[in-house]
């Protein structure tokens, strides 16, 4: 793992931290769900850097695609904002 990839990884970890804080602090559940999708996407790139392409393709399809869809259907039923 050379220094360029590590540098890129530290940049991506900043995105991860910001997305996690968005999930924590956002009162709008739509924003929180999209933040969790971003976390999954960054984790999928990390899996690719760690030489696990099988896990990366699965995480990209499931974590960023299907889980977001399921959560959005549930959010439609449960209400968009946290206060009610």
């Amino acid at each position: 793992m050379n220094n360029l990839i590590l540098f890129m990884g530290f940049g991506l970890s900043l995105v991860l931290v910001v997305a996690t804080f968005v999930v924590w602090l956002s009162k709008d559940l739509l924003v929180a769900i999209l933040g969790s999708a971003v976390v999954s996407l960054v984790a999928s790139i990390f899996f690719l850097i760690l030489q696990a392409p099988d896990v990366a393709i699965t995480e990209a399809a499931i974590g960023a695609g299907l889980t977001t869809g399921i959560l959005l259907y549930a959010m439609k039923k449960a209400g968009r904002y946290e206060d009610d």
Partner: peptide
């Protein structure tokens, strides 16, 4: 309740990343 489930989801992703990191070998290929 959906926020709580999102927290569990984040925990899941972190644990998976930790397990994969244990298996990495310096300079290794897939």
């Amino acid at each position: 309740l959906i926020k709580i489930l999102l927290g569990i989801d984040l925990f899941d992703v972190g644990l998976n990343l930790l397990i994969i990191s244990f298996g990495y070998v310096n300079g290794g290929t897939a």
